[in-house]
Design a binder for these strands. Sequence first.
DNA 1: TTGAAAGCGCTAACAT
DNA 2: ATGTTAGCGCTTTCAA
Lengths: 339, 339
Amino acid sequence: MSMTAGKRVGIKQVAEAAGVSASTVSQVYNHKGEASSATREHVLSIGAQLGYRPNVLGQALRSGRSRVIGVVVSYRDSAVWDQTYLPYYRNIIAGAAIEAVEHGYAISAAPSNEHGLTDTFLPLDGVIVVDPIPGDLVVEQCLATGMAIITDGGYETSNSAARLVTVRSDMDKGIPKVLDHLQAESAASVFRPALFVGPRLDSYTVDTIRAYKKWCEVAGFEAAVTTPEPSQSPLDAARTLLARGIRAVTAVHCLNETYCAAIFEAAAELGISIPDELQVSVAGNAAAMGAERRAVYLNLDPVETGARCARALISLLEGNDVTDIVEEVTLVPASQVVG
Amino acid sequence: MSMTAGKRVGIKQVAEAAGVSASTVSQVYNHKGEASSATREHVLSIGAQLGYRPNVLGQALRSGRSRVIGVVVSYRDSAVWDQTYLPYYRNIIAGAAIEAVEHGYAISAAPSNEHGLTDTFLPLDGVIVVDPIPGDLVVEQCLATGMAIITDGGYETSNSAARLVTVRSDMDKGIPKVLDHLQAESAASVFRPALFVGPRLDSYTVDTIRAYKKWCEVAGFEAAVTTPEPSQSPLDAARTLLARGIRAVTAVHCLNETYCAAIFEAAAELGISIPDELQVSVAGNAAAMGAERRAVYLNLDPVETGARCARALISLLEGNDVTDIVEEVTLVPASQVVG
DNA sequence: TTGAAAGCGCTAACAT
DNA sequence: ATGTTAGCGCTTTCAA
């Protein structure tokens, strides 16, 4: 155990007990193999005997690597934050924390505001930025300092020296999957799928819209993308969308749980029955709180995503080449409980 | 931003620019008020100008405080771990991480095994131990080193010097609440409430059993506590319990989601209808994945609990007196969706 | 009120 | 192959 309290055994104690110098001990513990195997064994056995654990703080200070990675929690704006982003971040954080510890890293949630990353007390070896927008302030700041970055969501940069890896869900496959499913299950005489997204143009949204439009084009349907006007609530936008009538809109795919909830509420108000008169699908965690059993889920597992991001970042920090990651998304039909 | 990469400005740069010594700068930034307000202002303004942020690693090394707190993830044993503990821990971790960062602390998930805490790489200022059992190895280890500890769940120690604070749910109030509710809703001619718990005698289980027995005694019912035999699965135990018949058992309170799921499965097998023939209640997160709408929930919010634990620990670390915390639990009736 | 010096635990040049 | 020296950024006596 490397605890703080109590008199811990340090490199010096081991050095003394083993009758060697501190640097030899250090050398044995790190650059495995420049010491004679005799001393090596000896030092190691003494170390084990004394219960020596290198103090990471010392290592960190000396090497400039803190073994702490940040998970950037973007600027929070009210309702949407609480409903969707906060739960999502929590899961990302938890997944990243559990993965990180396996590799000897700790997690620091790193809040950001309109000025970018706010004070993160511990120096960060790298960061995970969730859902950046193009030219994201936090990403650009980190890029500028040469920090290693993982984005959960696509990100374009011209910075060729960047240590930046993206992790994103494969909407190019997922969206057709869910639209095909909706069409196959559709009871309407004419299938009319709409897309309901938010105003924030992060890559997730952009990818979703692109895939939707492409599917419509290929399948010969007219694309209908609805976005709340500035200052319009998701619920209002949903009302407007559904007011077109159940012949104009027979199915809606929602960007996330927030928009899905708005659709359900608007449908209830208008006396539209789901899924009989209106099919609803949503990208989100089918196993999450208040998951809507009447909706089709394009299942996202944020805990796993968090773990994946942490793994990628750590791999990057260890000096490996890491390529962008595209996550598969699975389809969970309506009324199906997820184990 | 206190990032690692790039040439950060340190105490020396500030000292030089301000024309004072490093120790004066340090003094200004820490023991607010031993420098003349003139120098103070000056140093602060130069510091701000240069964007100086104390390097926590340096501080930590010198002061022996790492500003990292551990969340101990207990020994994981297979199925129960995945179903109940892992989700619970995740939420605790996320809640603790978000709370911690507000106070300048990072979180390290700290895995433990049968030998206690395994290597946690960063030195910990304190730990949060979830659901310790009496004489818990991890708790005792930490106690021995004088580390600050928060237990999520009651814990008894004779160590008077201990910096140990417990955070627990108020089962003494919660259990009567849920049993009263079940009794009031009961359709059976004779109300017969059973309790279904696990073999692990952590304080949460013990508290639950105690409160249940007391309620039965006061209300004049016979107490019936069911625990899986060693090597018996929860499902098997549930089968045995329900096999007694719907007149012998009209209601079951389950310790957690694992036991609740077992009851539901066994009931389905036996053709017992819930809640008509059998009332089921469970202590857990009513807003969680796969929450059972037919069950009555004694609602636990692990994210909030995690935050509370972190807050208590940090307060302890800052040298405050912190008293044990008892969390209220609320009742969520069956078939009610939680916002 | 301020500064000089020592050192937290460790690693990396450099010397031997 | 091993030891010596210096110093990462900071705090903390202790002296001025």
